[in-house]
């Protein structure tokens, strides 16, 4: 356990060195958020139809999305990717750490370190100047923290599953290309899930992706009751477990194949 913590710490330090990248990231996030807010504002101005969310809620949703964007599994660890591509992964097998958890820790640091660094200023600026609201109650805020933790472990487990598919390089790259847009749509990043047509809602509700982003945000907004957050957290964990089992199984098969090929 200590080894894994050290690993996460080391990755944090590496990622923290890129200060310009962090500053630029904050700027980028604010800018993209602003575009989205303006687009929604224009739409709300054009129509008096009742909408699934109020404009004020949408603004908060958008800024939460910009703050937490880094948690979404929308890219893979390029070091691991290169390792798999070049076959150097054999060296990783020699280390006295479990490969799955080793990479999982890297994924964890990669998702959490930059997000911690970026989300605080983004949320602060958005609350001060850009119309972001606080949660309606303390309970909603706590529920949000809980489901955000659920989202982190879920996202890392999902990212690992996609990473491991790269053992089968050709199809792996295709899977990666196909899966990442799915995350983009079904997590709520492209559009808050409530805005998709009614007939899509049961599907959206069933898929694991809403746990990556949409769920914590709705808890934050109070649209999901704080008490309801606990069973939802359970669902997040169930999906996480499923991804971990699938990822470990695939990884075991991948390394076996690698060893068999002698590559």
């Amino acid at each position: 356990m200590k080894g894994y913590l050290a690993l996460i710490g080391a990755r944090f330090r590496v990622l923290l060195q890129y200060r310009a990248a962090a500053a630029a990231g904050i700027g980028t996030q604010l800018f993209f958020g602003l575009i989205r807010v303006m687009i929604f504002q224009a739409f709300y101005r054009s129509s008096a139809h009742p909408q699934p969310m109020s404009y004020v809620d949408i603004v908060t949703y958008i800024w939460l999305g910009q703050a937490m964007l880094g948690l979404l599994p929308w890219n893979l660890d390029s070091d691991v990717q290169n390792m798999l591509r070049s076959g150097n992964v054999s060296y990783e097998l020699v280390r006295p750490l479990d490969l799955y958890w080793h990479w999982y820790c890297r994924a964890f640091a990669m998702r959490v370190a930059p997000t911690l660094l970026r989300s605080v200023p983004v949320i602060a600026l958005a609350m001060l100047f850009l119309g972001m609201q606080t949660p309606p109650s303390l309970a909603s805020g706590l529920g949000w923290l809980l489901t955000t933790c659920g989202a982190v472990v879920l996202n890392c487990a999902f990212m690992m599953l996609v990473t491991v598919s790269l053992f089968w390089t050709l199809t792996g790259e295709g899977i990666q290309r196909a899966v990442l847009p799915l995350v983009y749509v079904f997590s709520g990043m492209l559009l808050p899930l409530a805005f998709w047509p009614a007939w899509m809602q049961p599907l959206l509700h069933f898929l694991p992706f809403r746990g990556m982003m949409d769920l914590p945000f709705r808890v934050y907004l109070g649209q999901v009751a704080p008490l309801q957050a606990v069973p939802e957290f359970g669902i997040q964990l169930l999906w996480t477990a499923a991804f971990i089992v699938a990822g470990r199984t695939l990884l075991a098969r991948g390394t076996r194949r690698l060893v068999a090929q002698g590559g």
Partner: peptide, 17 residues
């Protein structure tokens, strides 16, 4: 997918300014 997003918005709001 991007365009689908735009389509969904128009389905909700009808028009944009």
């Amino acid at each position: 997918i991007e365009f689908l997003g735009i389509w969904a918005m128009f389905a909700r709001f009808g028009s944009l300014q």
